[in-house]
Design a protein around this nucleic acid. Structure first.
Lengths: 215, 215
DNA sequence: GCTGACATGTAACCCGTTACATGATTCC
DNA sequence: GGAATCATGTAACGGGTTACATGTCAGC
């Protein structure tokens, strides 16, 4: 149900074609949503039929024709209504964290390898978002653009960047944690007595497991 | 594709019925996945047909019959194979952040109201996860349970708690930011000259927009 | 000659959600 | 008497992904 408002919202900022909307979903808006062209085009047609947006076909030379959409008053009304409504909480689907949860089934070395690979992916994404922030900041300064629009976009971008920084930090801490248990990973710790419970507890406290309780 | 491995992974920890799997998805596993009973039951039947798990019907008195599933070697093999594979990055769908991105379309007071309401939701969830952490930690200490399983479960739980703490912190910072621009929210700032660009810039720097660039 | 950007779509399929269906027991 | 818990499922619908289809131009 939110793709609709993702499109309406974007068209409240500027007029755009389906192709341009997709690019925005892949860049800036990737922090909170993602979509495919094969979903965007039918949705645009649906919104036009519903009378919330209006499209104009523009003939180009050397390039295919394009259809530039514009939001109308009915669309803007529905958008504002949606903006005041309570949203569902995000439905998280994080296959990597699911993997981590079950990683006691593989060796400590494999766990560390997986954590390090994933950390790299996150780092890449962080750099991408930081580049977007740098570019958008530069354009704001050039135009001395002051508006609530700039404020909210910056807030969302910061949220995205913070999230990446935190994910990377968690990867580093967790790699360290697993490394501390490397030698005893596959053993039944209680039977072999290679480590006592006090040491085990101390490691997890240092990791911050209890600090997270805020006590 | 990951629901399959969510179920296999859970059955690698202990035997369970569909109903019990659902409860685990709602509690601990809610940090990285969520699912409905109407999806879990057919999936369990599918996995049994594929020969990865085995179910035994148990007749109960005073309660309906239940079917307890157990993972077999073929299932454990597929799980380990999946654990070593590279996962897709999480496909984020966060309707609230989408709202925030478009909130220049509503008044500053409405924005602050929305941010405060959402903050409350996140706080509720934080308390829930902290309770899970407290309970699980208590049970670990009681049994002096030391294992890689405990380590990985703790790591994932900490990730979930950290995420909530960061989301709440971001809400607080953003509320403060919007409050700073409250008086000029609906105005065209450049035209009215109610605020100069240096002040505008200073506010965003204080918010941490540039700190996030790591420069 | 190949890849990638530009540009718009359809069709098949898979996954996920909501609603429906059933029925006993326990607690308020 | 009503709500919640235990327990398993089917059916309809809606949303999302992958594959297919088409064609030009620019740059390597």
């Amino acid at each position: 149900m939110s793709l609709k408002f993702g499109i309406l919202g974007l068209l409240s900022k500027w007029n755009a074609t389906g192709y341009e909307i997709k690019k925005e979903f892949d860049d800036y808006m990737s922090i909170f949503w993602h979509s495919h062209l094969s979903q965007i085009y039918p949705e645009l047609n649906k919104l036009e039929k519903e009378g919330l947006i209006e499209g104009k076909t523009i003939t180009q030379i050397g390039k295919p024709d394009k259809k530039v959409y514009e939001i109308n008053e009915a669309g803007a009304d529905q958008l504002r209504e949606w903006l005041l409504a309570k949203q569902d909480e995000p439905k998280i689907k994080d296959p990597f964290l699911m993997q981590v949860f079950f990683m006691d089934n593989i060796s400590a070395d494999d766990v560390i390898f997986q954590l390090k690979s994933y950390r790299k992916e996150r780092e890449k994404r962080l750099l991408k978002l930081q580049q977007i922030m740098r570019d958008s900041w530069e354009s704001i300064k050039e135009r001395e653009a002051m508006s609530s629009r700039v404020v909210m976009a910056t807030a969302v971008l910061k949220k995205g960047i913070d999230e990446e920084i935190n994910y990377i930090k968690w990867c580093d801490e967790t790699i360290e944690l697993v490394e501390a248990f490397k030698d005893v990973w596959d053993d039944d710790l209680q039977a072999t007595k290679k480590m006592d419970f006090a040491t085990f507890e101390e490691q997890l406290i240092q990791y911050g497991a209890l600090k997270a309780l805020g006590e």
